[in-house]
Amino acid sequence: MGVHARPAAQIVKIASKYKSDVYISKNGREINGKSIMGVMMLAAEMGSELLFKIQGEDEEQAMAALVELVNNKFYEE
């Protein structure tokens, strides 16, 4: 039905697959990308530019997966 897009859940699910720390910021506010509560708080802010900061042993894979998620519009049907 796609009424309630679930991008927040998608981000968290993917971020949690990786060992690296994932931080997302918007309007200068930064949250842990593995926390759904954090991502929801971020989503409550106006604006649509997200900055991903990823650090750790599998940072490249994690970044690639998140970029793919965003580019695929969160795999919405």
Partner: peptide
């Protein structure tokens, strides 16, 4: 599927490390 997805978010909330 949509009903199932709603509870995906619930599971994530339950396991939220920050909380």
């Amino acid at each position: 599927k949509e009903g199932e997805q709603i509870f995906d978010a619930h599971q994530l909330l339950l396991d939220d490390k920050i909380i």
